[in-house]
Design a binder for these strands. Structure first.
Length: 197
DNA sequence: AAAATGATGCTCT
DNA sequence: GAGCATCATTTTC
């Protein structure tokens, strides 16, 4: 998939965009990682999406141009990286949940205070900590070649995708909608499901 | 091996 | 004031 095709995908449905982001490369400074796990959050019909009700100060970016970073703080201590993806006049985003470290690994280890490669990027909070992603990156154009934080499209399409229910969603808020996507051949880099009630 | 817990702060009602 | 799109550590089976 070319960069232009990825851009086009982000202008359509967020669920397909979440699948298309698998295998893409996340780049920040000298750090690079392959995205292996994503989740779709769609404003129109998904109560778990921050854009489900209306635009607020926090979720503005999700209502803006597709292909921009929506970064927010969760549980008071973890930054979450999303990419806006939707048709005109709608709001939705893909949560980037896990990645396989490729380059700049020493920097990630320093930021995380962890050595083991499988623990470096295997969760949305871990990934942002390792890359040093914070509120400063909110709203940045993630497809622009000169942006510090960017994503370059997967050169070859991912062979097999595993889908499952999203993580950490309260019951009644679409907790069983299977919009969590993982690269089947790279499950060792994926975040662990949280225990259920 | 699974479940409970505490840290921690911003956003929205 | 309640409720989180989490994580690492501790406690319990």
């Amino acid at each position: 998939m070319t960069q232009a095709e990825l851009r086009e995908s982000l202008r359509n449905d967020v669920v397909q965009a979440a699948r298309d982001l698998l295998g893409a490369t996340l780049v920040y400074g000298s750090m690079q990682a392959r995205i292996v796990e994503t989740e779709a959050y769609r404003g129109e019909d998904d109560p778990a999406c921050h854009a489900y009700r209306k635009t607020t100060m926090r979720n503005m970016v999700m209502f803006g141009e597709p292909g921009h970073a929506y970064v927010y703080l969760n549980y008071g201590m973890h930054w979450m990286l999303n990419v806006s993806a939707h048709e005109p006049r709608r709001a939705a985003a893909v949560l980037v949940r896990a990645a396989e470290p490729l380059a700049g690994i020493e920097g990630m280890q320093a930021n995380r205070g962890v050595e083991r490669l499988e623990d470096l990027l295997s969760g949305p909070g871990k990934l942002c900590r390792a890359f040093g992603i914070t509120r400063d990156d909110n709203g940045s154009d993630i497809l622009a070649a000169n942006s510090p934080l960017r994503i370059s499209a997967a050169e070859e399409s991912v062979r097999e995708i595993v889908a499952g229910p999203r993580i950490g969603i309260a019951e009644g808020k679409g907790h069983d909608i299977p919009w969590r996507f993982m690269e089947a051949e790279r499950m060792k880099w994926v975040s662990k499901p949280r225990p259920r009630l």
